[in-house]
Design a protein around this nucleic acid. Structure first.
Lengths: 225, 225
DNA sequence: CCTCATATTATGTCTAGACATAATGGCGCA
DNA sequence: TGCGCCATTATGTCTAGACATAATATGAGG
């Protein structure tokens, strides 16, 4: 076993088991180097990685300490709907409802495509989608065939490395939305709002609406290495 | 500016601007070391950090490549309700409804506390909570005063470094729940289910129910260093 | 032309030492 | 006693070199 990895894992285990509690002091690099019989740089690397993963906190001169756990954070994975539905073993289809060039959404500067459509799973409506794509940021979108391919899927291959912000809420559908989702206005739906930036400018904004009884989101948190 | 930091930031900028596209090859450590006039170990550290943050992918012999962006992942922060409500400038209060020792929840081994109560904001019900606490894992919980302090708040100070899994869905409340939340059974509510582990064993399981028009979750994704 | 062994190469890890930096604790001075 | 300065100390960063490892590219043989 790598010395660095061994140090990392042993310290992580001490923390996760509760043996070392938040705020406790971790031995100094020198002590650990002596204990594990390796160079200080190796210990430093191991501790640096633990710090990067949030398990410990390092302060010059003061030393290394077991970090206080984050209040509650977790990594949520929002799958591509085509993949999600395929993974369920159901037939996926995208149905374009409307496509037009709108001028200026809320936070989109300049002209944008406004796309509405339905994600179908096994012949039934699975999710409604309304999307804006900033043409100033993704001019190729004007030539894409959104009747054939869902805009989300198309974008995946055309906009690398963006930032995103999701807002998740429970809403009641409008009468029209309820009809499209084959449910009633009194049935809870999950709304997912995602805004995507690149270099500080909005690339796309999408609102997806799911029937509450057909979809849920999962987020996980696993500390450490 | 640090050489390591400079390398990291320049490469990250090249990727985030879209100049280097997913799959593109990043110069080798030797080339970068020569270009930046530093040791290979320094370049290696910078690239290692970029790899840890997911921006590049490294394969032995093959080289370093711009990573393909994750389908869609984001970090969600689930605030402590007491803090959330206080941050809104409203008075927070926890109202215990029932507390009993139940034997075995779904995935809890052994005896557990079963706690029900309401989180109040400005005198109105903000969220319903039903929680199990595994007494085998947190025996001190038996002595805590859950009439005075909300179990979530209490646990924050008593169980360091756990893993967690959240399931988020939109549901309709039961008649009883609707009454407690002063709303109707046709009003969409957000349900948050959180299971918390330590060392592979369930510590606590909580279900929180929010009025859809009063609460939403936010998740963000920011790539890079 | 295909397959398998081998040489090459880029990353992975480590060392021993050096200097930088920042924060703390204590010492000296007022 | 109280304040501010300074030495100490732990981390932060870097170097030059070494060896390990794994995957690709190449060449030999079938």
């Amino acid at each position: 076993m790598n010395p660095a990895r061994r140090i990392r894992e042993e310290i992580a285990a001490s923390i996760q088991s509760g043996e070392w509690r938040p705020g406790d002091r971790v031995p100094t690099e020198q002590e650990l180097a002596a204990r594990y019989g390796c160079a200080r740089a190796t210990v430093s690397k191991a501790l640096g990685e633990l710090a990067a993963s949030g398990l410990v906190e390092r302060r010059r001169k003061a030393g290394t300490f077991v970090a206080h756990p984050p209040v509650h954070s977790a990594v949520m994975t929002v799958p591509d709907l085509a993949e999600l539905i395929a993974a369920r073993g159901e037939a996926y289809r995208w149905e374009l409802a409307s496509l037009e060039t709108a001028d200026a959404g809320d936070d989109l500067a300049g002209p944008a495509l406004r796309i509405e459509g339905v994600h179908m799973a096994a012949g039934e409506a699975f999710a409604l989608e309304r999307r804006f794509i900033a043409l100033g940021e993704v001019p190729e979108a004007a030539d894409a065939d959104f009747a054939r391919v869902a805009p989300g899927t198309w974008l995946l291959g055309h906009i690398p490395w963006t930032q995103a912000r999701h807002v998740i809420r429970a809403v009641n559908p409008t009468r029209k939305e309820a009809a499209l989702l084959t449910t009633g206005v009194g049935a809870a739906c999950l709304e997912l709002d995602r805004t995507t930036w690149r270099a500080g400018r909005v690339v796309t904004h999408v609102r997806q609406l799911f029937r509450g009884d057909r979809f849920d989101l999962v987020a996980e948190f696993n500390a450490g290495p």
